[in-house]
């Protein structure tokens, strides 16, 4: 049997094996024990800790995350809030939550008129495909929000053997 025959004949079986290798997390070592996702109650409590019982309105906030994330360990995230950022009318805080991480909090930023523009960027970890929520608090005390469903193709954080 020539090497070429071998290469051709094997292709279909090889593709299955490759798919298996990759689907098993192939290139990474077996996962250590993974922590559970936050419960919906924990998520609600986290949001309540920020907004109290004030109503949160959808709008004025724009959450930017690539719709299909290449690796959940490092996910670029930008939050921009429409605001003149003056002494009289500005964004006081921006909070980001991830509902299926072990803990829902991601970042809480404090801003003011000196911030000039209400736009921040960070890189975050997402344990899984999930909804990310951004909430902004304005200087008049009102709360505004945006949410995005993010699809994570590889699991984050937990594949290292320690």
């Amino acid at each position: 049997m020539s090497a070429t025959d071998d290469g051709k004949k094997m292709t279909r079986r090889e593709v299955l094996k490759i798919t298996g290798a990759l689907a098993l997390g192939g290139t990474a070592a077996p996962a250590a024990v993974s922590p559970a996702a936050a419960t919906p109650a924990e998520m609600q409590a986290a949001v309540a800790s920020v907004v109290g019982d004030v109503k949160v309105t959808q709008g004025r906030v724009k959450l930017d995350i690539p719709p299909l994330v290449e690796n959940g360990n490092t996910v670029p995230c930008t939050v921009t809030v429409e605001s003149p950022m003056t002494a009289a009318d500005h964004v006081r805080a921006i909070h980001v939550f991830a509902e299926r991480n072990p803990q829902p909090y991601v970042i809480s930023a404090t801003l003011g008129p000196r911030t000039g523009r209400a736009s921040i960027s960070v890189r975050m970890r997402l344990r899984d495909s999930q909804t990310v929520l951004a909430i902004a608090q304005m200087s008049d005390g009102s709360f505004w929000s945006d949410r995005i469903n993010v699809i994570v193709t590889t699991g984050a954080c937990l594949e290292d053997v320690l």
Binding site: E14, K17, I18, T19, G20, L22
Partner: peptide, 23 residues
């Protein structure tokens, strides 16, 4: 154990999308 060569993924199947990953 999978009896695969590097070349199976990076030569023969390069550019293919398998299990959500482009080889």
């Amino acid at each position: 154990q999978l009896d695969l060569a590097c070349a199976h993924c990076h030569d023969a199947n390069r550019g293919k999308k398998l299990a959500g990953i482009t080889l």
